[in-house]
Every structure is written in structure tokens, then in C-alpha cells.
């Protein structure tokens, strides 16, 4: 007898998977929230005239971009606590990993957007007496932010999917929940199909929200 797709498995699994979805969304949200601040700080550091800030931001960005996320997760959850002689809850370690990781990529987005704004804008701002910071805040940032939205959206989607890597530290997010269900019912095909579809729904919704935001902001050039 050939393989038979059991729809009942899907209906039974989905409610349990949704519990995992909650954690996936939570991790994505907090990871990106902190990642956005980190990324903005590092991106500004990269564009700043201070050599030290430049170096620090550069070191952070390069070390994150140059190592696999998996290794970063393990380092934060297993490595760091050992050196510091503490324990970190998996959920916290996971959010920190997502934040640190997305922050480095967001930094490059921020830097690129800021540097893409015509120098004449800063000069016009400074020439009416704005300080460097005021010119950044009122003149450059609003224009740069608009340009950041598409690449930021891309990064949000990547980070959402990246949370699935947190299975390695036992965070009960969506992928982990899928594994646990399979351990009981052995229906790998149905469960992974369900898991994949749920990820797809989340990423597509995120895309929609982002392109809507982009359009809203585009009304004014």
C-alpha cells in the first residue's frame, strides 16, 4: 500500500503548533526590536567621524556577518554562561542571538541608507545652524528611513525564519514543536508540511504589512 496523506494529523497538529508559533513570533519581535536599536547604533557608528566608534561598530558587524548563526546561538547559550559561570534561559539566549545577528545586518542597511542621502542635505541643514545631531535627526533620518524599509522587510523575514535554528538550544518555537509532535506520531510528512505552511503564512503576512507601510510612506517623496 502506498503513502496516504492523513489530513487528520494536520488538524490535530495545528493547535499544538500554534503554541510554538507564539514563541516564534515572540522571539522574532523582541529579537528584531533589540536588533533594530543595535543596528541603528552600529550603523550610525559606522557613519560617524569618530574612529573609535567606527572600529567598534565595524568589529561587531564583521564578527557577526563572518560567523554562522548556529555557532552564535551555541556560543551565547552554552559558551558564554560557562565563562561567566551563570545560566541563561534558552528563550533569552535565543532572543539575544536573533537580536545580535539581525543587528549586524540592519547596521549595514542603516549605513547604506544614510550614505545614500545627498551630502547637500546635511550641508543645507548645517548652514541654517542645525547641529550635526539635529541635521541627522530632522533632515537625514526621515529620508534614509524611507529607503531602509524594503531591505529591513527582507531582514525581518530572514530573522523570522532564523528562529527555527533555535531548536538546537531547545526553545519550544514552531520548528521544535513540530519535532516533538513527530516524536510521538511519526507522521513526518504531514507535520513538516504543516510547519512549512505556517512559516509561509507568517512570512507572506509580514511582506504584505511591509509593502503596505512602504506605500503609505511613498505618498510623500
Amino acid at each position: 500500500m502506498g503513502f496516504q496523506f492523513k489530513y487528520s494529523v494536520v488538524w490535530e497538529s495545528v493547535p499544538i503548533l500554534l503554541v510554538g508559533v507564539k514563541l516564534t513570533l515572540l522571539l522574532t519581535f523582541f529579537g528584531l526590536l533589540i536588533g533594530f536599536f543595535l543596528g541603528t547604533a552600529a550603523g550610525l557608528g559606522k557613519t560617524s567621524r569618530s574612529r573609535i566608534l567606527n572600529k567598534i561598530a565595524g568589529f561587531y558587524i564583521e564578527s557577526i556577518r563572518g560567523t554562522p548563526l548556529m555557532v552564535q546561538v551555541m556560543f551565547i547559550y552554552f559558551g558564554l554562561p560557562m565563562a561567566l559561570n551563570t545560566r541563561i534561559p534558552p528563550l533569552v539566549a535565543g532572543a539575544v542571538a536573533i537580536a545580535l545577528n539581525s543587528g549586524a545586518y540592519i547596521a549595514e542597511i542603516v549605513r547604506g541608507a544614510i550614505q545614500s542621502i545627498d551630502k547637500g542635505q546635511t550641508e543645507a541643514g548645517r548652514s541654517i545652524g542645525l547641529t550635526r545631531f539635529q541635521a541627522l535627526l530632522y533632515v537625514i533620518w526621515p529620508q534614509a528611513f524611507k529607503r531602509m524599509i524594503p531591505p529591513l522587510g527582507n531582514q525581518f523575514i530572514i530573522s523570522l525564519k532564523d528562529t527555527s535554528l533555535l531548536v538546537v538550544i531547545g526553545v519550544g518555537e514552531l520548528t521544535r514543536t513540530g519535532q516533538e509532535i513527530i516524536a510521538v506520531n511519526f507522521r513526518a510528512f504531514e507535520v513538516w508540511t504543516s510547519v512549512a505552511l505556517i512559516y509561509l503564512v507568517m512570512t507572506l503576512s509580514l511582506s504584505k504589512v511591509l509593502s503596505f507601510t512602504e506605500k503609505k510612506l511613498e505618498i510623500r517623496a
Partner: peptide
Amino acid sequence: FQQFNLFPH
């Protein structure tokens, strides 16, 4: 400035 440099936003 020659290029005006108005704030477009």
C-alpha cells in the same frame, strides 16, 4: 546653493 537642497520630506 546651486542645487537648492530643499528638504524633500
